[in-house]
Amino acid sequence: MRELWDLFVVFARIGGFTFGGGYAMLPMLEKEVVNGRHWADEEELMDYYAIGQCTPGIIAINTATFIGYKIRGIPGAIAATLGVIAPSLVIITIIAAFITNFMELQLVKSAFAGVRACVCVLVFTAVVKLTKKALADRAAIALFLIVLALSLFTGVSPVILVVAAGAAGIFLKRKEGEKK
């Protein structure tokens, strides 16, 4: 029971400070889940993100469910997922109920402009840290650059990119095996 509560609280904290899409969760996950609780390592986190991209549902929820399930099975998956959505539920309900022109408030605009700059830096440092292992050789770095370019400059769906990268991984590694 304690562990479930732990999962709920940690993921509520993560949900409460995720500004933007699921990628904005990464710095928090790295701090809380990888370094803090050792619930998953860097590689697992990258796996969850990749699989979370191309399975139904939004990434943030998928990643939380993955980690929750790994720690405590189905109850864990539910606890972590409820944790991520709890802050949204409270905050959005309050805004929807009481603040009619939330986005017009200069205070909100300014605060969020600051947060945006911060999130960029946090995501950047988290990506650097997490990908050290994932980008260990030249082939992986090439794959990283190709996917980055395609995703920045073309409208190719992330689903296709992830599936293609998986296939490329199988192909590259098999070739490597043949050489040996």
């Binding site: 904005a24 995501v123 995703s151 992830v162 990268a165 998986g166 991984g169």
Partner: peptide
């Protein structure tokens, strides 16, 4: 599965980096 995950991790890192760059454009 191991080999597929090897490719997936690189893609995953790239997609997160791309999303981060998108926010950076708006922020900076």
């Amino acid at each position: 599965v191991q080999h597929a995950l090897y490719g997936l991790r690189a893609a995953s890192a790239a997609l997160i980096a791309a999303a981060g760059l998108g926010v950076a454009k708006i922020a900076f």
